[in-house]
Design a protein around this nucleic acid. Structure first.
Lengths: 157, 157
DNA sequence: ATAAAACTGTTTACCTAGTTAACGTTTTAT
DNA sequence: ATAAAACGTTAACTAGGTAAACAGTTTTAT
């Protein structure tokens, strides 16, 4: 056992904060998520895109002409919930709902030039903030973390 | 480069799903968090404790006579938000708000016997479900994950 | 050919989880 | 003694999501 004065203090401090909760993946996940999400909001500012609107725009830019149903599935949310998100992006002039010749049910989502540049800009700012927030994690650690999180995600269809 | 038929297919599939979003820690964190949180709810059932109520109870059991302010700080939420949580736990008969002799502002939170057994029970069920959900992660991976998440958490005061 | 089933986008009502600002009470500092 | 701070609480608000129902459209069975 470590016997130095420092480690005893550190041990004591850890004991003080320690709780059953720390053992749960879910709890740690949530606490970390809240921190990163707050940083995200700080990165894009008060009138900037919210996390979910940013995510939707990202996918529309990358997968032009995607339908709302497919987009909702990709985001892992219900398509009813996507409506307000697309409304906002359309309202900001970042994408358009366009009709599709073969199928009058769907409306393909097409990013505008403005939407594309807005996304590139936001992407850069978020990345910058995230890098700063996580500066005490090495590149390898970040990659490990993403790998483990995706392993959790891979469980769901 | 891998040349087998399988790897080409796997590569194609990965490409199809790949998006800028996967690079963001925040996005991966959120998606994983949603999965684990849903599992948590499944573990405790429709009328079971919600995640935050469970967390609050956990800390009250472990730190008997804690005040609401200190508890809120431990949970990383505002003390105003804690009121409803404590109301619920008190309503279920899992804890009591008790007056403190020296200070008439505070109300020490004391778990009832019922609260303690309810917590032990819930704790076991959540752990069981979490283990099952994360069965494709090794014990070492889970520990690594927790360590990395706590490294993120350690950034905030 | 026609009826049934399935899919698309949408609205509405609801739920969970949290914040900020204000207030009355009590305690601490000056 | 008085000002400042801390405690628990309420009220109004924001964010993010679900479930159920709907009208219109397309696909599938028969």
């Amino acid at each position: 056992m470590a016997g130095s004065e420092e480690s005893k203090i550190a041990e004591l401090k850890r004991e003080q904060d320690a709780s059953d909760l720390e053992e749960f993946i879910g709890y740690n996940l949530k606490r970390a998520y809240v921190i990163v999400q707050n940083d995200f909001r700080a990165a894009l500012g008060k009138d900037g895109l919210g996390p979910r609107v940013f995510s939707a725009l990202s996918l529309v830019v990358q997968f032009s002409h995607i339908t709302q149903s497919r987009l909702a599935r990709k985001l892992g949310i219900e398509r009813s919930g996507l409506v307000a998100i697309i409304d906002e992006l359309e309202g900001r002039g970042f994408l358009a709902r366009t009709t599709v010749p073969g199928d009058r049910r769907v409306q393909a989502l097409v990013p505008t030039k403005q939407g594309i540049t807005a996304y590139r800009d936001a992407q850069a700012r978020v990345k910058e903030h995230e890098d700063l927030l996580l500066e005490n994690l090495t590149a390898a650690e970040k990659q490990t973390l993403i790998g483990l999180l995706q392993k959790i995600r891979s469980g769901e269809e």
